[in-house]
């Protein structure tokens, strides 16, 4: 018998870093250009009003310069946001209330707690749905209904009710985050746990395997690719949930609170800096999950 193994895919697509980066950089430059144009357009009105009120004329070049350096612009220019970000991240002690690192940490800790709760709840419900006919028919409609309720309406109620019970801080926010993140996990896990086909199940039956065997040896490993796809959605949703939970009045910490106080005081630069921090946080979290996915699936011999 000849060696019938297939060649390992050793050679991955090999491209120069520059060639890889060029499209990304191009898109980025286009976005920045549009952003500057929009900033000039949106902020110009205020400058013209100012000039009219003072009874002076303003030269177009002067107008453009001023629109890009306002204190409270309608739309801050990219460089203003960059300065705001730099100041928030590197310009403060990270224990300071003005530090974006500190606010990001507050949000991150609630996000991770909510993600953990949501993943556990979603998985547990999925396992129940796959194994119990009555749960299969009763749980899913409620799970879907839970997601149709606007989170913006639910979040303040949960926060208020829990704080009246003396529960404040991380847990209420984590519960809102879990509310959003359990759903993708539930849907993905149900789908994943049901991927084994009739033949694989017959096979287990021919070995007189118990339900526990079928679960641990077949359903769970088969569901992992689906689980990871869901986890990426779930962790981003958990971050959104946490930020929404930080919006109701009273919250003073976290990126959501930062967004809200920025809008109270017209600090648009602060809003945008917080937004970008949140986006970077989301991207990082999803990337971490993707990395864990690759390592896990590769260890299991599946090509990720």
């Amino acid at each position: 018998m000849t060696d019938g193994t297939l060649p390992m895919p050793a050679i991955r697509s090999f491209r120069l870093p520059l060639a890889k980066a060029a499209p990304v950089v191009t898109v980025l430059l286009v976005i920045v250009a549009i952003w500057y144009a929009a900033a000039i357009g949106m902020n110009a009105r205020w400058e013209r009003d100012q000039a009219a009120r003072a009874g002076t004329q303003i030269a177009p070049s002067q107008l453009v310069l001023r629109t890009l350096s306002q204190d409270r612009p309608v739309l801050p220019a990219p460089h203003q946001v960059a300065v705001g970000l730099y100041d928030g991240i590197a310009g403060q002690k990270i224990t300071s209330r003005r530090s974006l690192v500190w606010h990001a940490w507050v949000t991150l800790s609630a996000t991770l707690a909510g993600f953990a709760i949501g993943t556990a709840a979603g998985s547990a419900l999925a396992i129940g749905i796959v194994h119990s006919r009555s749960m299969d028919q009763s749980v899913m409609p409620w799970a879907v209904a839970s997601q149709t309720v606007p989170i913006l309406a639910i979040a303040p109620m949960v926060i208020v009710v829990l704080s009246s019970m003396g529960i404040t801080g991380l847990l209420p926010k984590a519960l809102i985050a879990a509310w959003l993140s359990f759903f993708p996990v539930l849907v993905g896990m149900v789908k994943g746990l049901r991927t084994p086909d009739a033949m694989q199940l017959d096979q287990m039956r021919s070995w007189n395997a118990s339900r526990a065997h079928v679960f641990w040896f077949l359903r769970l490993p088969a569901s992992l690719p689906y689980l990871f796809a869901s986890l990426k959605v779930a962790i981003a949703a958990a971050l959104v949930g946490t930020i929404v939970a930080e919006l109701p009045a009273g919250a003073t910490a976290g990126l959501g609170a930062r967004l809200l106080s920025g809008s109270y005081y017209g600090q648009t630069v602060q809003i945008w800096a917080a937004l970008f921090t949140a986006a970077a946080l989301a991207a990082t979290l999803v990337a971490v999950v993707a990395r864990v996915e690759r390592i896990t699936l590769r260890k299991m011999g599946m090509q990720a």
């Binding site: 033949m199 017959d202 096979q203 070995w207 007189n208 040896f217 490993p221 299991m300 011999g301």
Partner: peptide
């Protein structure tokens, strides 16, 4: 476990 059954497809677990 009186018999072993071989199906039409190998049905090996990829993991």
């Amino acid at each position: 476990r009186a018999y072993g059954y071989v199906f039409q497809a190998p049905g090996l677990f990829p993991w």
